[in-house]
Each structure stands twice: as C-alpha cells, then as structure tokens.
Amino acid sequence: MHSDPVKLAEQGGADVERAIHALRDAGVTTIADGGLQSVSQINAVKRFTELPGFPLRITGVVVADAAKAATLRPTAPACAPNGGNDCALPKWLGAGGIKVWVDGSTQGCTAKLEAPYHYLEGGHCSGEGEGRADYDSAQDIVDSLSPLWGQGAWRFQLHANGNGANKWALDALSRLQQSKENPHRVLLIHNTMGQPALSKRIGDLRKGAGVMDGQPVPALDIQVTHLIGHVAYWGDAFVGMLGEEAASEIDPVAYDRENGIPFSLHSDSMVTPTRPLWFVEQAVTRRTWSYPDFQKEYVLGAKHAATVEEALRAITVEPARHHELDTLLGSIEPGKVADFVVLGANPLDFDPAKGGDPTKISQIPVIQTYLNGRATGGSH
C-alpha cells in the first residue's frame, strides 16, 4: 500500500487511470467510497477529484471509529447550483455518511445468519454454524454509534448480509431512533438474506409504525442496496450454502416492492464488476450459473425479479437518494445538474413484459458519459 495516499492520487499511474476510465466507459458518473478510514484517505479521495480531467464524482462514507477518533463532522459539496448562483457542482461531494460492518460476507461464511450454513461436513462453510457478527449484540452497535447518532448531522450505512445481522441492525437503529430522532436517511448495505418479516419491519419503521422493546419508534427513512451480483456469481453456490429456499430469497426485490422500500443495486467493487447495465440485466433476469464449469444455468428466485424501470431507478435516482444527493443528481429534471449517459439502445425496449429480451441489456453500448453537460471522454 502506498504510504502517502495524497501523493498516490497526484502521481496516479497506468493501472489507476485504466480503472477510472473503465468506470467512465461503463456509464458511471458518481461513485461512493464506502470505507474512508482516516483524514488522509479523505484528503486523497478529494485530491483525486481535483485532478485535471477526472471523469467522476465521489461521495464519501467514513468508518465510525475513524469519525469518532478524529472528531469529524459531515461535509457537503463545496457549492450547490441553484437559480441564484453560477456554481458548477464539484466532483468531490463531501463525506456525510457513517459506515459500520454488522457482519461479513455471505459467500465467505462470515455473514450472521439465523440458521446454520447448509453444507454437509467437508463442504464450503461446513462447521461455520450461523456465521458471525462484528459485534456481540445489537446493544453493542447502539453503544458504538450513539455519540455520532446524537449529533443529528450524519446519515448512517450499516453493512448487513445475513438475516441475523439485519435483525440486529434494525434493533440497533430502532433503539437509536427512540433515543433521538435522526432526520437523515439510513442505508442497509447488501440486505442479502431476504425474509418477509424483515422487510415488513423495514417498511413499518419507514411509516412510523415500528415498535422496539414494547415502545413505538419514530419514523426512520431506512433504504436498502443489494449486491445483485450475488445472484449471478454465487446464486448456485448459495443453494448449497444456504439451502434452496433461502437462496431463492436473496436480494428480495419483491419484498422491497411490497413494503415500499427504496432499493438500489451496487457492485461492492472490487467484489463484482462495476457495470450498471449488467446490474440491470441481473436484477431483471435473476439468472445464475454453476461455476466454474457452467453446466447449469437457471433463474433463482423468479418472484424477486425487478422490472427494467425499477432496475434503472436502482442505478440512478435511488442511490442518489441514499446519499441525500437526489436534489442534485440521479435524474434529468429542472434544477438538477446534467449528469447523464447516452446509450446505443433504450433499455426499456428489452423489458420482457413488452416482448423484449432482457439478456441483451448488458450488451447495450455506452456511447458517451457526461458531467455538468460536458462529455468526459471520447465515443466508444
């Protein structure tokens, strides 16, 4: 690892440049750095956005312990355009979120589950039981976040894969909201292991109908983001790791829809490729394969398939909402900046409800990517 992250940002290098341009070429305009661990890392990311020709915007999410250690306060864009100024929205959008990990990776056998991993003795994850959490209890999460929550200035993002971890996250958030109402949005990252009761609880909390420890919970704007690559890359493996029924419930879009929960799709880069149109295809088709031989291909959890329109919202306006940037970004409307992509075809034409072939969505070419109405690179 480079000892001086700011110097790394300034010097760059061919590998860094290729990675950045690959994001642009895939039609990405804004990314979230979801694990800033120090002031120097924050400064380095900000410095990246200030380099000549940098083609992306970045919003930052700070690790809770780092924010407490450095007594940080949330930051916003240096200026925001409106009818009375000539501000061009900067590429550094500030660091206004707090991040904690409630558990680890579902496929890595470290998600916190309510039931043991499914594989028989000798299989992947055998002997791991219900996985594990990064905390000993929901109350430990409350104790960790209380100083930051009490400021009333941060939005919060909790990494939770397993259904056990999601339950702990909701318990902690409910108690925190009872202690002091947080006006900002809260995000559950991954929310992988779907359960009807969990999603109903999220919906209830959003409506102000939540209850914790026998007491009502003030309304809390909880949203979710799914690592949709779980379906394509690990779906068949999850059938063995979790059991067929549980595997079919991963990334539970149907429950999001039923309970009015805004959801987005993400890559968890470098876990899966950052290709937004591939996210759309994965969410709409729910196709999975057996790796590495590809002898099986099938649909996993068909009831959780998204519509093309839902999936497009999940890579545009919904993530902007998560980061409280939706007054500026995420859609083309009066008052917002002109960040957009030009595609070689209309993804809505591939909607299976209209007779389209959604397996071709990821093949739609990205012709050009724009920030502030200006092209960020040549045609592709």
Rank of each mutant, 00 (worst) to 15 (best):
N85Q: 15
K99Q: 11
A67N: 04
A76N: 05
L158M: 13
D140M: 02
A66W: 11
K112D: 08
V142M: 08
G104C: 05
A76L: 06
Q157R: 03
S146I: 05
V142Y: 04
C87M: 09
Y135N: 09
H118F: 14
H124K: 15
T71W: 04
R155F: 02
E114P: 00
Q107T: 11
D136G: 15
K99A: 07
S105I: 06
T106V: 12
E121H: 10
G96K: 06
W101K: 09
A115G: 03
A153S: 13
A95V: 07
P116L: 08
A64P: 09
L158Y: 05
T75S: 15
A95T: 13
F54R: 01
L89W: 00
A111Q: 07
L89R: 01
V62H: 02
P74I: 01
D136F: 07
W92T: 02
D86M: 04
G131W: 07
D140K: 09
A153R: 15
A133E: 12
L113C: 07
G104Y: 03
G94L: 06
L120W: 08
C125A: 12
R57Y: 01
Q157F: 00
H118K: 08
G150T: 13
P147R: 11
P90Y: 01
Y119F: 01
I141N: 02
R132K: 10
S137K: 13
Y119L: 02
K99W: 10
C125R: 04
A69Y: 05
S137M: 13
V102A: 07
A78W: 03
T106E: 12
A69W: 01
G131H: 08
C125L: 12
A160F: 08
T106N: 09
T59S: 07
Q151E: 12
A67T: 04
C109I: 04
K68Q: 14
P52Y: 02
G60C: 05
I141H: 02
Q139L: 13
A70K: 10
G53K: 14
H124I: 11
L93F: 02
I98Q: 02
E128D: 11
G83S: 15
N82S: 14
G84S: 14
C79Y: 13
A88F: 01
F54L: 06
L148E: 05
E121T: 09
G127S: 11
G97S: 07
S105L: 03
P81V: 06
H159C: 13
G94Q: 04
V62L: 10
G60D: 00
F54W: 14
S126R: 07
E114F: 05
A67K: 03
E121C: 06
G129H: 12
V62S: 04
A95R: 00
G84H: 10
A138S: 15
G96I: 00
P147D: 13
G83F: 04
A76F: 08
L113F: 09
L51P: 03
S137A: 15
P52N: 07
W149C: 08
P74H: 06
H118N: 15
C79T: 05
S144M: 10
F156I: 00
Q139G: 12
N161L: 02
S137Q: 15
D86I: 11
T75K: 10
G94M: 05
Q139I: 12
V142C: 03
